[in-house]
């Protein structure tokens, strides 16, 4: 009976007293060490964080202190570019403190960055269950779904992340628009590109998105107009010039396509050769077109060269 009373008393005593009885560290000392870890983490001194943590854990601190210590250790590993070690710490901490969404969020974020999208999905979902307005978790889950190919599932999370960020994150909006292009959701892609243009009216890439939307809808006149705007904004962008030429060609403006291309003989790359060849072909200059197709076909192991080879083969087979 005497032993039971003593054990009960031991379990009921305050933590620092328990530390005294069971050999653990006092809360005050542990909090001081934790503060030291925080200060060193803020200063980017992860070596000191590691040293303090070793001492701290030897002293058997309370659960709450350990929980905070894990977060500093994990973040240190992350900042040092050691995701595998960070994962080990966060997984351990997440197992011990499943209610702490910080560990789930950090794990999800690392898995996303390292390409383990399917592993990240349930962790982001867990975070969002507790905090549906978490912008990073919404955008993270959207990215995971988009990377796995689940574009319909990705869309509402991109949307929520954009709304929660008050349409102020340009890189998120550009990514969102690009994924909607991939989904051929022209309306949504155009809407998001519009929002992005309000933030960055001089961003040529956004006009390229608008051009892709118009081309997807079959409006090549509009697509070429957007692409001309993009070229104007980024005069050094050769790729944009070639895209403009291709849009002019697809819109049936063969002369405009040829004019947009770099001067004949100065082409750099197979794409300009293919566009020139296709425009000449449609103008009835088949022999010249064939020469360009052949040259593009021999330019390397790219999709363009294979496409040009198919065009050449088709023409030679006639």
């Amino acid at each position: 009976m005497k032993r039971v009373v003593m054990l009960t008393a031991a379990l009921l005593v305050p933590v620092n007293a328990a530390a005294f009885l069971f050999g653990g560290i006092s809360d005050k000392k542990a909090e001081d060490m934790l503060a030291g870890m925080a200060a060193n983490f803020e200063n980017g001194d992860c070596r000191s964080v590691a040293e303090i943590s070793q001492t701290l854990f030897r002293e058997k601190p309370s659960s709450a202190i350990r929980e905070k210590a894990y977060s500093y250790i994990g973040r240190c590993y992350e900042s040092q570019g050691l995701p595998d070690k960070a994962i080990t710490v966060y997984k351990l901490a997440y197992g011990l403190y499943p209610e702490n969404d910080f560990f789930a969020a950090r794990l999800a974020s690392i898995y996303l960055k390292t390409g383990f999208y399917a592993t990240a999905v349930p962790l982001f979902e867990k975070v969002l269950k507790g905090r549906s307005d978490d912008v990073e978790a919404n955008s993270g889950l959207a990215r995971c779904y988009a990377s796995l190919g689940f574009l319909s599932k990705a869309k509402p999370y991109y949307s929520r992340a954009a709304i929660l960020g008050d349409f102020g994150d340009l890189s998120l909006l550009k990514e969102y628009a690009a994924q909607m292009l991939r989904k051929r959701d022209w309306e949504e892609a155009a809407l998001i590109a519009d929002y992005a243009l309000k933030l960055a009216p001089g961003d040529a890439a956004l006009y390229e998105v608008m051009a892709r939307v118009a081309a997807g809808r079959g409006d090549y006149k509009q697509a070429a107009a957007h692409m001309r705007a993009a070229v104007k904004l980024k005069s050094s962008g050769t790729e944009l010039v070639l895209e403009l030429a291709l849009l002019e060609f697809l819109g049936g403006n063969y002369e405009a396509a040829l004019s947009a291309l770099p001067a004949a003989g100065t082409e750099h790359g197979a794409l300009s050769l293919v566009i020139r060849g296709m425009a000449l072909y449609k103008k009835g200059e088949r022999a010249r077109a064939l020469e360009y197709f052949k040259e593009a076909a021999g330019s390397g192991q790219s999709f363009i060269s294979a496409f040009a080879a198919a065009l050449a083969k088709g023409e030679m087979g006639k």
Partner: peptide, 23 residues
């Protein structure tokens, strides 16, 4: 090259922005 290029597997090719534009 013209006759063999369409047969080469997609995985063996290098992909560029130009490829993406054409595709």
């Amino acid at each position: 090259i013209i006759f063999l290029a369409p047969l080469s597997p997609a995985g063996a090719r290098e992909f560029t922005k130009d490829d993406e534009i054409l595709r």
